[in-house]
């Protein structure tokens, strides 16, 4: 029973971070019809920025300041997104989508090395935050409290995003643009502005995912590319462009990963990719996607 609870908590931990990454990817696709191959690197930028900031003030500052600085990764990722969309992506909307995939692939290569340049080839960690929260006991086992905090942040982010998209005026405009860009434009929506906002929001989510997981896992080169593929699996299962789908997909992938690592480690990744392939074959639009 205890082990089951721990497995479930770990699944939720994976799912929280995956939802933040994949939700951003899906939001961007839903509104702009762009699959951003550099999205995983945006997540890595979030992780690196937070780890770097924590490392800078660690030792001198009180622990509470360390927690206060944690969201800086999300802010950095959002700022990056706000710069990238108008400069690199906007010129390509009228071109075939092959070019959009390619430019984000180029961006992936560039960001990978920019991170290597700024933060070096060695991993960064922000484990002070992880250790600072201590742990609690489940039966006879102990479990880090920070993991629980990540799950809570993930859940709150999902709720906030839902409220944002379905309960605000901006959300209405976002959904309208996503459904019919031309019609929205004809009705006076500034589509360029919506695009940059959606892209920034998507990057913010990815950056937040990186920022909250970095105290637990550290930041290493290549983390973005790995995360991107998992996020792909999530959005394919749930449905590209659907936030509910991203949530469902993240939960499924989180559970399969956690139990896969424990019970069938050799084929854990293969099972995930096969799940995505099977969903694509049966329901190409994903479990909760619009056809």
């Amino acid at each position: 029973m205890e082990t089951l609870i721990i497995h479930l908590l770990n699944s939720l931990l994976y799912a929280s971070v995956l939802f933040l990454i994949a939700g951003g990817l899906s939001l961007i696709y839903g509104v702009m019809r762009i699959v951003n191959l550099a999205h995983g690197n945006i997540y890595a930028v979030g992780a690196y920025t937070t780890a770097w900031a924590v490392g800078r003030i660690e030792g001198g500052a009180p622990t509470i300041a360390l927690y206060a600085i944690l969201p800086i990764g999300a802010v950095a990722a959002a700022a990056l997104g706000a710069v990238l969309e108008p400069t690199l992506l906007r010129p390509l909307y009228k071109r075939p989508e092959e070019y959009q995939l390619l430019i984000t692939f180029g961006l992936l290569l560039v960001l990978e090395d920019v991170m290597r340049f700024i933060w070096g080839a060695y991993p960064l960690s922000a484990s002070a935050l992880f250790e600072g929260m201590g742990s609690f006991s489940i039966g006879e086992s102990i479990y880090p409290a920070y993991n629980l905090a990540v799950i809570i942040v993930g859940g709150m982010a999902a709720a906030a995003l839902w409220a944002f998209v379905y309960r605000t005026k901006f959300g209405v405009i976002l959904r309208a643009t996503s459904q019919n860009m031309r019609m929205a434009s004809a009705l006076g929506v500034n589509v360029n502005q919506v695009y940059v906002q959606a892209f920034t929001l998507g990057c913010f989510m990815a950056g937040l995912g990186g920022a909250i997981i970095v105290p637990q896992q550290g930041a290493v080169l290549g983390m973005g590319v790995d995360a991107l593929i998992l996020a792909f699996v999530v959005v394919v299962i749930g449905g590209l462009g659907s936030l509910e789908g991203a949530l469902l997909g993240a939960l499924m992938v989180g559970v399969v990963r956690e139990f896969g690592i424990t019970f069938f480690p050799e084929i854990e990744l293969a099972v995930l990719y096969l799940m995505a392939a099977i969903v694509l074959l049966i329901r190409p639009a994903g479990l909760l996607g619009r056809a």
């Binding site: 390619l102 430019i103 180029g106 290569l109 560039v110 990978e112 090395d113 340049f117």
Partner: peptide
């Protein structure tokens, strides 16, 4: 080198 290739591609 990835930076070089990435810029070329972009």
């Amino acid at each position: 080198w990835q930076l070089v290739l990435g810029i070329v591609l972009v």
